[in-house]
Structure formats: C-alpha cells, structure tokens
Design a protein around this nucleic acid. Structure first.
Lengths: 150, 150
DNA sequence: TCTTAAGTGAGAGTGGTTCTCACTTGAGGA
DNA sequence: TCCTCAAGTGAGAACCACTCTCACTTAAGA
C-alpha cells in the first residue's frame, strides 16, 4: 500500500474541477477556495471560507458547486463530522481510499487494502464482494513528525 | 477472512439486547421485531414493522430503543440507504466488519481485511493508521445459489 | 402496596441538504 | 457587437432523519 497526497488538483485550473463548460465568478471563487483548503472540510466550512472571500455567495450555490465537482470526480466524500459530510479535493482517478488525519484533518490517498486474498476468502464462504467503502483514520506524516519533534 | 452470520442474537432473549434492567411492552415488541428482521433495515422500516405488530408505538420510542441496543452493542450501523442509517442485529463482539447483500439486504459478519501489512505499508509513508471503517457490498451465499439455480 | 426512576407518546425543534422561482449572466452564433 | 438561451444564482421555503421536551405511565425493587 502506498500513500501519496491527493492534492495535484490544487494546481489545476478552477474550471477543470467542474464537468461543465460555463464558469461563473461564484464557481471560480468556490473552486479557488477549495484548492486553497489544506484539509478535509464540510459544506458549511466551505461556505464560510467562500463568503469571507466573496460575501453574498449563497449556501445553495456552494452545495450546487460541490455537487458539480463530485460529479466531475474532483471532489470526494471522505466520511463525516458531526453529521455533516466531510469533503476533500482529490485528483486520483484510479481505485483508492483516503486516510483522514484525526489531528489536522489532512487527507491522504491510500491504495486499496482489499486484495485478491480478501475477495477469495469471502468467496470461500459463498459470498461475492462487488463493492466496498473504506475510510482510514490516523495521524499523517506531518503531525507525527511534529509530535515527535516537540 | 472468514464470513459467518451475524445472527446468533436472534435466539437471545429480547431483554438481552438492551443494556438496561427495565423492560416495557414496547421495548419487548421492538426487540422481537428486530430479531425477526431477516436483513438490514432503517429506523423508519423498523417503526413500520413495529406498528404493524403493535399500533401506537411512537417513532421516538423506536429511536430510543435503537440507541439503547446500539449502546449495548447488539445493534450496529452497517452503512446507509437513501440518507437513513442502515441497521443490523449483530452478536459478534470481536473486531469485524459487515458485508451487505445488494440483492436481499442480508448482513454477514466478515473478519477485518486490514492486516499488519496494510498498517506497516502506511507507516512506511509516515502515516499511522489508528482506526478504520469498512463496509463491503456484494451478493450473499443464498442469493448466489438462487441466481445460479434459476 | 408504595416509591421512584426509567420509559412512553405526541409533537415541536434542529440541522444538513435540496428544491423552487424569479432573476442574472456567460458563451456561442449571427 | 448584439442576441439568444440555457446554465447558474440568491433567498428562503421545504424536506427529512433524528433529537429533545414535557406531562404522563409503568416496571421493578423495597
């Protein structure tokens, strides 16, 4: 299993995060704000950050932009916090999962730990695994070095 | 990885599903209904099933009973369906996960596929895995034999 | 029986998310 | 440079799963 940052999407153009042709000022602001986010965030946190940048952008607009980015595959849901969906920017399009740092909220892409052996073992019991959903929680490399340094 | 039914709780007394001493008629009805459930269910589905059995039992009572059974560890959340939490009876108290059958909704306990190798590989990238959440979707043994039989 | 705290039903409240509607605006074509 | 039109927007209502409150009931131990 290899772990690498999810964040190459940070350097792509805002428009690339959506699946549509048309780019409004609001969507550009939202995309830029998402790219500036250093960790996983909720829709409400994103709305707060966006309105700090450009007051007047509605919550519904933020939700619509989130939906568009999720459809385009540039934004993924990585669990939840206090009943709200936790979102993160992710440029990887191959099959993978995410490790959410419980210290700082950073999200790291992780290769899928479900291997052939797992699927075969399930098959031995008569079950067929067709899909799965995995979220890993832990402490990221940065937080570990910080903790060990102090 | 071994897979085995989650359902030994089906044969236990209703009172054993809750962590408390006191048993009301409502809680007994709810526990019996849960034990009769052949698959994963939502709170609303349970409420419908319970009121079919004993009309007048309130939704809040069902939610309170679900909370008590979850605290007691006899009922677990195994994902979600249409925005509602998906619940299932489970008697296993060791570390494990669940396979939800996409055909019939049956739930099967599955040993944890996250092994030492996975954790060590994450550690090699500097990350420490402290917790995880896994839901497997697939087709259970019964549904497979049915499909192959027809 | 009595006491008492746990449990109950009804319904209001909460909070995240989605929908509606009238209005605005970006982008492509003439 | 207009014109057209569909995509996008803001405000706020609506939706929905779930929780809380409150007056009342009841199980269980003394």
């Amino acid at each position: 299993m290899a772990a690498r940052p999810t964040h190459s999407a940070r350097s792509t153009k805002p428009a690339a995060l959506y699946g549509s042709r048309r780019m409004s000022i609001q969507r550009t602001t939202i995309a830029t704000t998402v790219q500036a986010m250093q960790r996983a965030f909720t829709a409400e946190e994103l709305h707060r950050a966006v309105t700090a940048e450009a007051p007047g952008i509605g919550l519904a607009t933020v939700y619509r932009a989130i939906g568009a980015m999720q459809s385009a595959g540039s934004l993924v849901s990585v669990g939840e916090r206090d009943g709200s969906a936790l979102l993160a920017l992710c440029a990887r399009h191959d099959h993978h999962h995410h490790l959410v740092c419980t210290e700082c909220g950073a999200v790291v892409a992780i290769d899928c730990p479900i291997d052939d052996a797992t699927v075969r073992a399930a098959a031995r019991s008569g079950h067929l695994v067709t899909d799965h959903q995995i979220i890993l929680y832990g402490i990221c490399a940065d937080c570990r070095t910080q903790t060990e340094g102090s």
